[in-house]
């Protein structure tokens, strides 16, 4: 009886899976389609990622769009051609002059140590901290805000930690920098020095549980053993093996290379302003 079953009925119900959709060939990254500048292939500098970290977009895929990132980078480069935004790291001492409607001479200059930085693209920001007249204060600056007249790096150096928020709980002498500090000399081509100072913290209570943060730049905290035991329970030693976490938090290297090749035509200008600021450091220190 089954042999009398017409074949087409089975086809109606048990269709073959549809063919592979013809997908448009989308390049992994828009490679200079409109402005072709592949002649001068700049060698990729090894420290681009640390010197210009805000050029890398936020890795969250829901927010990414190549055209918007490109437009944002163009705006960033335009702004950088007007105001030289120097290379700086957390732990560097900087002086920022902003236009201030409420100040007496319409400008406001603040000197401080960079305790944190973040943001991508035009939203990039950094925090400066200083202790003035025994009062600790911090100011957050948006790197691409047009109110900023000038950013100088008075002392270019790195610290042992990636964030210096513990300076809020440290003795005030570690956050005190004179407001009339002179820029310090750095020889041409020298690597960025790492200041391995160990900061002494004030007695508890603190803003955060510093014993849990694996800080390298603080002296022995002098806490009872139970704090360190609790800290050990909160440790996540597996995170350094978590490849997916790293994948989600970073832009792939190939894309990074593409991005930096895109801004390669402007690299000369960026690097010259970076060298200029270093030379200015050298010049001013002579006097």
């Amino acid at each position: 009886m089954l042999s009398a079953v017409p074949r087409r009925i089975f086809h109606t119900f048990f269709r073959k899976p549809p063919a592979q959709r013809v997908t448009a060939k989308v390049p992994p990254y828009i490679r200079d389609q409109l402005d072709s500048n592949t002649d001068n292939e700049q060698p990729l500098p090894h420290d681009f990622r640390t010197v210009y970290p805000e050029f890398l977009p936020d890795p969250r895929p829901e927010w990414r769009n190549r055209l918007r990132e490109r437009l944002e980078r163009n705006d960033m480069l335009t702004r950088r051609s007007v105001v030289a935004i120097p290379e700086f790291y957390i732990g560097s001492i900087m002086a920022v002059t902003v236009g201030d409607r409420n100040a007496s001479d319409k400008t406001n200059r603040f000197v401080g140590i960079c305790i944190s930085r973040g943001g991508t693209g035009l939203r990039a920001w950094f925090n400066l901290r200083n202790v003035i007249d025994h009062q600790g204060l911090e100011i957050m600056y948006e790197m691409y805000s047009p109110l900023i007249r000038n950013i100088e790096v008075l002392r270019l150096e790195k610290r042992l930690d990636e964030e210096l928020l513990y300076l809020r709980d440290a003795l005030p002498e570690y956050s005190t920098f004179p407001l009339d500090m002179e820029p310090e000399l750095l020889p041409e081509g020298a690597p960025v020095p790492i200041n391995d100072i160990k900061v002494k913290l004030k007695p508890r209570p603190w803003h955060e549980r510093w014993e849990r943060k694996n800080l390298q730049g603080v002296q022995d905290l002098g806490l009872p053993q139970r704090f360190y035991n609790k800290a050990k329970l909160h440790e996540k030693p597996w995170e350094k093996y978590d490849l997916m976490m790293e994948y989600r938090a970073t832009i792939p290297e190939e894309e990074q290379a593409d991005i930096f090749h895109e801004i390669a035509p402007h690299y000369q200008q960026l690097e010259s302003s970076r060298r200029q600021s270093k030379r200015r450091l050298a010049q001013t220190s002579r006097y």
């Binding site: 902003v98 201030d100 603040f110 920001w125 009062q135 600790g136 204060l137 911090e138 100011i139 957050m140 600056y141 948006e142 805000s145 109110l147 809020r168």
Partner: peptide
């Protein structure tokens, strides 16, 4: 005259509420 709370950009944030 000064707050310990996180402030908007360009507004100073103090270590104590003054």
């Amino acid at each position: 005259t000064g707050c310990h709370q996180d402030q908007f950009p360009l507004m100073p944030k103090f270590d104590s509420n003054n």
